[in-house]
Amino acid sequence: MNLVWTWLSEPSHYLGSDGILARSWQHLGYMVLTLLIAATVAIPLGLWIGHTGRGRIVVVNAVNGMRSLPTLGLLFIAVLLMGPRIPGDLAFLAPSIFVLVVLAVPPILAGTYSGVDEVDPAARDAARGMGMTSWQVLFGVELPGALPLIFSGLRSAALQVVATATIAATVSIGGLGRFLIDGLAVRDYGQMAGGALLVGVLALLLDGAFSLVQRLSVSPGLSAPEASSRNNQDSTATITT
C-alpha cells in the first residue's frame, strides 16, 4: 500500500509526455476514437436490423461468439499480422485500435437492435397507422425508444475499450496501461498498482459520466421504473477483459 501511495503522491509522475495526466488523456483519446468509429458502424447497422428484422440471427450469434474470444490473443495476432504492413508508430496503434473497434461494435450493435426491439409494437403500429413514413417511424419512434439501450451499449463498449486499451500497452501503445506494463517490466509494484488504481478510477468515472449523460438525454417518459432494464444484462453487457 505504501509503495502505491509513494508512487501516486510524487508530483513529477503527473507531468510530462509520459506523466499520469498525459497518459490519461491518451487513454481517453483511444476510447473516444474507438467509440466514434464503432458507433458509426454499429448504430446504423443496429437500427437497420431492428427496423427490418433482417440479419438478426447472424448478429445475435456473432455478438455472443465475440464474448468467448480472448482479447489478448486477438490483439497480438492483429499486431503481428498487420503491423509489418503499416509504417512507423502506427504499426502498433492501428492494429490496436482495429481490435478495440472490433470489440466495441458488438455491444453497441446489440444495444441498438434490442433497443429498437423494445419499442412497444402498439406504438409502432399506431405510428404507421397515422401515416408516418418508414423513415419517420425510424427516427420519430424507434430511435428515441431505443436510446436507453443504445446508451447502455455505448457504456459497455466504453468500459470494454478502457479495459482492453490497458492490455494493449503490452504491444507498445500508450495510455494508462503503460504504468502497469512498464512497472511489471522493472518490478516496480508501486507503479503497477498505482496505474491499476488509476485505470479502475477512470473506468468508474466513465461509468458515472455515461449514466449522467444518459439521464439527461433520454426522454423522461422512457425512464420510468418499469422501463425494462432487464435486457441490458443479457443483450448488451459484453465482457470487460
Partner: peptide, 23 residues
C-alpha cells in the same frame, strides 16, 4: 399513397400505442 391515406383517417388501437418518449 398509403401514408397520405392514413393521415386522413383516425386510427385507435387496443393498447393506445402512445409514444412513450413524447408528452
Amino acid at each position: 399513397n398509403p401514408n397520405e391515406l392514413r393521415r386522413g383517417m383516425g386510427y385507435v388501437i387496443q393498447h393506445a400505442g402512445l409514444f412513450p418518449h413524447r408528452s
